[in-house]
Simulated scan of single mutants.
Amino acid sequence: MSEKDLGMRAAGAKALAAYLRQEMSSGRLSEGMKLPPERKLSETFGASRGTVRRVLQDFKARGLIAQAVGSGTFVQAGVQAMVEAAAIDDPAPAVETSPAELMEARLLIEPLMPLLIASHATASDFSRMDECLVRAESAETIEEFEHWDAELHKSFAAATHNSFFLQILDLINDVRERGEWGRLKQQSMTPERRKDYEAQHRALVASLRDRDAAAASAAMQVHLRQIQQNLFGV
């Protein structure tokens, strides 16, 4: 990524954080109000979805907003006084990771999640997985499929009920939203490969629903290794 692109991302993050501070301090964003979707914030402020998530995560950690999977992001009670007292620094710059490095890390990290999912996942978690499966399978473009593919893997992280995995998946999705990953996916995707991915997703969710952590972990490794093979031929 060029220095110009990095500068634009940093500017977008600063603009979003400044907007939220100003709107909360003025009372225009008050208790219970719902923030625009991440995609809309990304478009408005010229920041990647991952950058938007990092800004929102910072505001969430300070108790200014609350997030509910499938419902959205909402302003917390007493936010006007809290934001005036909080020293909210600019978000950290995006981590620069190549698609090849991303796949290496995913193969190490994501197969660990099923053990926690098997222990902690709720009916709501499985409902979100099912929604992502259906939306991905009905996607009419590769971009739409990629979005719901990423959301499915994020739903796995959410189902661990461990904030570390959610933060890692946010970083993973940030890399996936960059141009290089998209170009590789466009070049490698065929109707047959997409059907393979969809079948692997279904098998993975079925193993998780059965609380079979070993089978789900093995299915995750198979899925990620096929993606790696299709993208890089290794």
Rank of each mutant, 00 (worst) to 15 (best):
S119V: 13
I168G: 00
R193G: 13
Q76M: 13
A157L: 07
Q229R: 10
I172D: 06
K185M: 13
S163H: 14
S2K: 08
V205K: 03
P114V: 02
V205D: 04
L166C: 14
E137C: 05
H201E: 09
A118R: 02
D196G: 08
M1L: 07
I172T: 10
A61W: 01
F156H: 12
A216D: 06
S119K: 13
A85D: 10
L6Y: 12
P114I: 02
D212Y: 05
V75R: 07
S26F: 09
A85M: 10
E144V: 08
P114L: 05
A77W: 05
R211F: 06
F232C: 09
I168S: 01
N230D: 15
G233R: 03
P91C: 03
D149F: 12
K154F: 13
S124C: 04
S207E: 14
A121H: 08
Q200V: 02
Q200N: 10
M113W: 15
Y197V: 15
L108W: 11
L204M: 12
A10K: 09
H223P: 11
M8L: 12
G12Q: 06
D130Y: 05
L224I: 02
L6P: 01
V134Q: 14
R62A: 09
V175Q: 07
A150E: 08
Q200P: 05
A150T: 06
E101T: 12
L102P: 01
A61C: 04
L208Y: 01
A94D: 14
R62H: 10
L108T: 14
L184M: 13
A139F: 06
R135F: 03
A218M: 13
E131H: 09
V134Y: 10
P93W: 08
E3H: 14
A47D: 00
S217W: 03
G46H: 12
R128T: 08
K195H: 11
D174Q: 06
T73M: 11
A158D: 07
A61I: 01
V79Y: 02
S163C: 05
A87N: 15
I88F: 09
T190Q: 07
E23N: 11
K34L: 14
E177K: 00
T141E: 02
N173D: 12
A136H: 03
I65N: 04
E151A: 11
E43Q: 08
A199E: 15
A203G: 04
M82F: 05
Q229S: 01
A214W: 05
T122H: 03
V134G: 04
E110V: 15
M1K: 09
G32S: 10
A13V: 02
D210N: 08
V205Y: 02
S155D: 05
V55D: 02
S207I: 00
A118W: 10
E143N: 09
A94T: 08
Q22I: 04
H153P: 03
M189Y: 08
M113Y: 10
K40G: 04
L204H: 11
F126T: 08
E137Y: 00
Q221P: 00
Q226K: 08
R128W: 14
Q80D: 09
